[in-house]
Each structure stands twice: as structure tokens, then as C-alpha cells.
Amino acid sequence: MQAIKTTDLTIRFGKFTAVDRVSIAVEQGEIYGFLGPNGSGKTTLIKALCGLLSPSEGTGTVLGMDCVKQADEIRQHVGYMSQKFSLYEDLTVKENIEFYAGVYGLRGDYLRRRKDDAIAMTHLEPYLDRRAGKLSGGWKQRLALACAFIHEPKLMFLDEPTAGIDPVARRDLWDLLFQLSGQGVTFFVTTHYMDEAERCGRVGYIYLSKLIANGTPDELKEIPEASPPGTRRIEIITSQTSNALAAIKRKSYVHGATIFGQSIHLLMDNQIGLDKVKADLAADGFTEAEMFPIKPSLEDVFVTLTNSLKE
């Protein structure tokens, strides 16, 4: 059984189409990354999958349950965590966990066991009596996760779970996600971070309400639209990246150029040889540049797809 399956799911608000004929399938135990610019329809799709919005057209099932008819049951079996770490700051860690446990109707031994598990999983033990508002960002996120996971959901929606937290906490969270997905929990994660997208089993990219890419990160890098016909990508390593970027951008055979740390990623006509690029850079005074062909990164793929749709 697939954890999520949608067929031509469409959601309209009046004349505005927020989600346009999106079809995705997420396998159980998979970590599915859902990317797209702000306002492209990510949160709307999550709301529809939880039965908070009815699809204008198309269908969706979550854990085998219909998104419209069985919305109540779906909400009992999925977890949701948003970027805001929606916690009650004047309640203690323990009270927050107990509140969500109550909301999901946990009782008796099961309640005690789940509380212990959630606390152990997130290492919140030392902070149980601290007010949630007094926790640092990373700990707030752990608490939010403990709350969202208290009822042992089979599927978790994480809406930009790592926005605004430090890299160590980010890494810890992902380690936890992999551990849980190994136990069969499915994750539907929205993010703006490409390194997180690379970690996902499969990735969807939504732009202007339409799903324009869907597959494993490696598959997406191979899709023909990622590199327009007659182009290729190269990486240039130079010590003066920003000046070199300005110089190379002006060349007529260059379609796009971006800085990645100490290097420049270039999308260029594949007729042009590397020698030509090297010579042009040398002519502009960048003599010690090294270059070699590369595969597109996920970011390259999304930027190219977005730009081709803009045109």
C-alpha cells in the first residue's frame, strides 16, 4: 500500500488554482522531499491530504484512506509539524507533550509508553519541566517532533522542519528521520535546502501549482529538461570567483552562471570547447582557472526548470 497517492489532485480558491493536477505516489517508509518556491502550493497540498481542504478535482488517498471521506481517521493516524514549531510557549515540555497526547486520545499504559518513547527518542528528559518558550531552536524542534509523533503516526508531514535552526540540529533531525523511516514511518518533507533534498528517497518539485519534476535525485539530474538541448555544464575553479563570474557571463555562449563556494557552475553551448572558455578567461586576466564537465546539481535542475517555464 502506498502511504500517499494522488491522481490529478486540483484545488482551486475561486479563480486561483493553488494545486494543479498533481499526481504523486509515496511508498511506505519513504522520505519524500517536496520542494518549490513559497506560495507554489506545498502547504495547500498537505492540507488537502489531511482533509482540511476538499479537492476541486482529482482524488487523494492517505494510508489507504480517502482524503475527503475519511479525513477524521487520517488525522488520527498522521503527524504534522510546521516550521513554526507550533508549541505553547507558556506550557512546559511535559505539558506540551501531554496536551498532544490528550488531543490524540491516548490513554493508560499506551499513553505512558508513548510519552516515555517520545521523550527518549528526542532526549528531552532533562528539560521536561522547562517552559517551551525557554528552549533553544533545536530543542523546540525536537519537542515539536515529539508532540507530532506522540500517537505513533505511520506518516508524518514535516513542513519546512529545519527552517531557521542550526546545522547540528539539522543533522540530528535528519538522523532521526532516517532512523524512523527505517522503522517504516513515511515522511513527506517540504524544504528549501538542496542538501536535504539530496537526502530524500524521492523528490517532487512544484512550481506555479504544477508538479514539474518527480523522481529520485539522480533521476532528476538525468532528465533532458535539466539541461536545455545543445548545452552542457562545467565547473570552473578560480580564486576570483565573483570577478570571473562577471566576465564570463558576458560571453554569448553562456546561458547561465552561478557561484558555488570557490567555483562557478556554467551552463553553456556544448559546441564550445573548454579551451575556448579557458582562453576567454585568460584574456580577461583570470589565468589560473581550472575547469571540468559536471552533472547538474538538484539546484541546477530546479533553477533550469523554473527558468524554462518563466520563458
Binding site: E73, H77, E98, G102, V103, L106, K154
Partner: peptide, 28 residues
């Protein structure tokens, strides 16, 4: 499904009343 055995599926229209009430009292 395992979860279904342990948690009764509730389609009670007042679902959440007691925990919300308790939480609100703490807020106050």
C-alpha cells in the same frame, strides 16, 4: 493497522474538548 487497535477512532464532534480545556486553564 496496529495504531487502530490501541486508539479508538473517534468521530465525536466534541473531540479534543478535555485536553483543550486543561491546557487553557494552565494558560490562565
Amino acid at each position: 493497522m496496529k495504531a487502530t487497535d490501541q486508539q479508538p477512532t473517534r468521530s465525536n464532534p466534541f473531540s479534543g474538548l478535555v485536553p483543550v480545556l486543561r491546557k487553557e486553564a494552565i494558560h490562565i
